[in-house]
Amino acid sequence: MAMPILIAGMGFLFSERAGVVNIGAEGIMLFGALAGVVGALYLNSAWLGLLAAMLAGLLVAAIFALLTVSLHADQIVVGAGINILAAGLTTTVNRIVFGMNATPPAIPSFHVLPFPDALARISWLGEILSTIFSQNILVYLALFIAPLSQYFLFHTEIGLKIRAVGEYPKACDTVGIDVVRVRYGTILFSGLLGGAAGAYLSLGVLSFFMESMTAGRGFIALAAVVFGKYTPYGVLGAALLFGAGLSLESRLQALGTGIPYQFILMAPYILTILTLAGFVGRNKGPAASGIPYIKE
């Protein structure tokens, strides 16, 4: 459950660091989820489906970048627009491709990689390990993102540029940094990862597309960036926490605790609000966050 938040969050961490607030995260994930299923269906491969999802995310992010970076449109307005567009367009395309009430066709998806049986049988420890490691391959790939991002942001010249652009773009301009290019780059990258995170939902968890299936995970990913204090490991921790909240929701529902299910459904979102309000408080983001850079 934490994985889509982690993947998307890591992407939006980069654009946030460059001073771009993309609340279109939700829409980008939704486009990714649909493109993943459609791609996997027609190209008959889960991997090609993932690629299609990433390309869809890239395309939507490119539109966002064009409007906000080049044309200085307000980031919040464009992001909200993308979310509304995604909700409508994915529903329409989904109904065209899969029909209204038909049962979803079998599509190639990512399966759980089996834990070696021999190891699982050794003892109770093996049994626990086998439950933990019954994951699909994307999980293992995703876990590499945090250390890679950490290295990239804090130990490379481009990482320094990204952090600087989010703080004071004009100063970057005076030392010869192309602010527009840096912002485009991070937005496109966040689109790639946002699309992949959507595909994780549709190809790794469910094997089909459901209308509005992201259910606020894009926003939670953005919240994870803030809660994680704009650092890769922070985002990892926040994603795990919010993921746990989402798992709790499905477990509690299955257990039948007698709590009205509406409250259980609210749980992860309330957890998100509480953590943001309670723990983050004065957490300071990049100084130039959300402000279009207009060169004189």
Binding site: A164, E167, Y168, T174, V175, I177
Partner: peptide
């Protein structure tokens, strides 16, 4: 510049090397 072109959140050394190409495959 009259209004300093420095990034307050970064360290002195980060501000100095910002935007420079050290020719180490991009590693700082």
């Amino acid at each position: 510049h009259q209004h300093f072109m420095l990034i307050p959140a970064l360290s002195v050394v980060e501000n100095v090397v910002l935007g420079m190409n050290c020719g180490r495959q991009g590693r700082l």
